[in-house]
Computed example of a mutant assay.
Amino acid sequence: MAITSDKHNERIAKMTFASVYPHYITKVEKKGRTKDELHEVISWLTGFTVDDLNQLINDKVTFSDFFNRANLHPNANLIKGVICGYRVEEIDNKLTQQVRYLDKLVDELAKGKKMDKILRN
């Protein structure tokens, strides 16, 4: 298990989705992917529609609230690999792991992976 510190986990839990979302857009668009593709990836992981995302952004929900409201895809556990120096499948804190799942999917999208691979079909 990858041990993340309590301080690290707390910082992630209190971070707002709205503060990170623009960075996701910038990252994928800089690599030639679209906002629609980003939404598809986020929707696959969380079950949120674009309207849901806009509401969550407007409400400035924390990642803790974001993932408490999400319906995580049953195949989310198939997301593997290293992100931010941690192997996502080994992260011991559930919320931190879920945030890193999202980071990993955004990363794969930006790196040009095919959508069916990203969505674990």
Results as ranks from 00 to 15, higher is better:
Met1Lys: 12
Ala2Tyr: 03
Ile3Met: 09
Ile3Asp: 09
Thr4Glu: 14
Thr4Ser: 12
Thr4Pro: 07
Lys7Arg: 14
His8Met: 07
Asn9Phe: 05
Asn9Cys: 13
Arg11Glu: 15
Ile12Glu: 00
Ile12Gln: 06
Ile12Pro: 02
Ile12Gly: 03
Met15Gln: 12
Thr16Gly: 00
Thr16Trp: 00
Ser19Cys: 03
Val20Trp: 03
Val20Tyr: 05
Tyr21Arg: 01
Tyr21Ile: 03
Pro22Arg: 02
His23Arg: 06
Tyr24Asp: 09
Ile25Trp: 02
Thr26Leu: 10
Lys27Ile: 01
Lys27Asp: 06
Val28Cys: 02
Gly32Ala: 09
Arg33Val: 12
Thr34Phe: 06
Asp36Met: 06
Glu37Tyr: 08
Glu37Gly: 07
His39Val: 07
His39Trp: 04
Glu40Asp: 07
Glu40Leu: 06
Ile42Asn: 04
Ser43Asn: 09
Trp44Phe: 14
Leu45Lys: 09
Phe48Gly: 02
Val50Ala: 09
Asp51Leu: 11
Asp52Phe: 01
Leu53Gln: 07
Asn54His: 11
Asn54Asp: 13
Gln55Cys: 03
Ile57Lys: 10
Asp59Gly: 01
Asp59Trp: 08
Val61Asn: 07
Thr62Arg: 03
Thr62Trp: 02
Thr62His: 04
Thr62Tyr: 05
Phe63Leu: 14
Ser64Met: 05
Phe66Arg: 06
Phe66Ser: 07
Phe66Trp: 11
Asn71Ile: 13
Asn71His: 10
Asn71Leu: 03
Pro74Asn: 05
Ala76His: 09
Ala76Cys: 02
Asn77Leu: 10
Asn77Met: 05
Asn77Asp: 14
Asn77Ser: 14
Leu78Val: 11
Leu78Tyr: 13
Ile79Lys: 10
Gly81Lys: 05
Val82Glu: 15
Ile83Thr: 15
Ile83Ser: 15
Cys84Asn: 14
Gly85Thr: 10
Tyr86His: 15
Tyr86Glu: 12
Arg87Cys: 13
Val88Arg: 00
Val88Met: 03
Val88Thr: 03
Asp92Phe: 05
Asn93Cys: 13
Lys94Gly: 03
Leu95Glu: 08
Thr96Ser: 15
Gln97Asn: 00
Val99Ser: 06
Arg100Asn: 12
Arg100Thr: 10
Tyr101Cys: 01
Tyr101Lys: 00
Leu102Asp: 00
Leu102Gly: 00
Leu102Asn: 01
Asp103Phe: 11
Asp103Trp: 10
Lys104Asn: 04
Leu105Ile: 00
Leu105Cys: 07
Asp107His: 10
Asp107Ser: 10
Asp107Trp: 04
Leu109Met: 06
Leu109Val: 06
Lys111Val: 15
Gly112Asn: 10
Gly112Lys: 09
Gly112Val: 11
Lys113Thr: 07
Lys114Ser: 15
Asp116Pro: 12
Asp116Gly: 08
Lys117Val: 15
